[in-house]
Design a protein around this nucleic acid. Structure first.
Length: 272
DNA sequence: ATTGAGACCTGTCGGC
DNA sequence: TGCCGACAGGTCTCAA
């Protein structure tokens, strides 16, 4: 479930049960996701109240009364399940951390593949974190605009798809929405990123189109996550190999190829 | 400094 | 039904 829209949907769903409640108990059933949990992880959480529950890129950040921040990442297969107070509790074998909140609600972090991450950072560790402190702009914020993207793309020979996946350029896109945004923008995933900028790093028209496409695709995906359940209209190119291109007036067929070890879906007819 | 390949771990799906 | 390979929405490390 986990690119920016899915993480944001998860945050919205869990926030009412997390924020302003105290963590009365934590079951650490497996302290080894992508990294081993920090020392005294459980002890540092016990009795803490969650003050805010925010998202940065694909990370979820719960700030605690102690000023420490609980950082969570879903990896490829992470998710939360919320069990109402007093309800029967079923523990899945991939529920690695289970939070018992002061309301009686139980929130479980589930992650079969264990590419996810959970850690607890002091304010200083949060500020200087080697990954978090280097994340690029939030794609839905005004900080992500064509000039910013063009500067990041200047002189880069890497294909556009790879640059959209680089979390230091823009933070939160993954394999699906990078492909979707490139289709909306009518840009080939194989195109060199440098094509978005002039020699001095000024944005070309394609940079404006791509920025707008990224925002549109993510906004649509978030609203889709929150409301829609119809899976048929979910993606324009992702997982649609050999199917007709959905762009109005385009008669192309969606192709698939491997880029940097991952599947890229695109329309060779309308993405240039 | 950039870039691509491989690794991490488990589950699912299609083909034989 | 059972086995096997291919593949999966992310990131990190390493070598070129």
């Amino acid at each position: 479930m986990p690119e920016l829209p899915e993480v944001e949907a998860s945050r919205l769903e869990v926030d009412p049960y997390f924020t302003r409640y105290r963590i009365d108990n934590v079951e650490v059933r497996r302290p080894d996701l992508r990294d081993r949990f920090p020392t005294r992880f459980r002890e540092r959480l016990l009795g803490q109240t969650v003050e805010t529950f925010a998202r940065r890129a694909k990370y979820l950040l719960a700030t605690l009364t102690s000023d420490e921040t609980l950082v969570m990442h879903f990896g490829m297969s992470g998710s939360f399940t919320v069990s109402p107070a007093g309800g029967a509790l079923e523990i899945d074998k991939h529920d690695h951390v289970v939070f018992h909140m002061s309301s009686g609600v139980i929130i479980a972090f589930n992650d079969p593949r264990r590419f996810g991450l959970m850690t607890l950072l002091t304010p200083r560790q949060l500020r200087t974190h080697p990954v978090l402190s280097r994340l690029g702009p939030e794609p839905l914020s005004d900080d992500f605009d064509a000039p910013t993207l063009a500067r990041a793309c200047r002189g880069r020979k890497a294909p556009l798809k790879a640059v959209l996946l680089d979390q230091r350029v823009v933070a939160g896109l993954g394999n699906i929405y990078a492909a979707e945004a490139l289709h909306v923008a009518g840009l080939s995933p194989m195109r060199a990123a440098s094509a978005l900028a002039t020699a001095d790093g000024e944005p070309k028209e394609a940079a404006f189109r791509l920025v707008a496409a990224v925002k549109a695709v993510l906004l649509r995906a978030i609203s889709f996550q929150v409301t829609d359940r119809d899976r048929s209209t979910r993606f324009r190119v992702y997982d649609r190999e050999s199917l007709r291109c959905l762009r109005r007036g385009c008669r192309g067929t969606i192709a698939r190829r491997t880029q940097a070890g991952r599947s890229t879906f695109y329309c060779p007819a309308c993405q240039r």
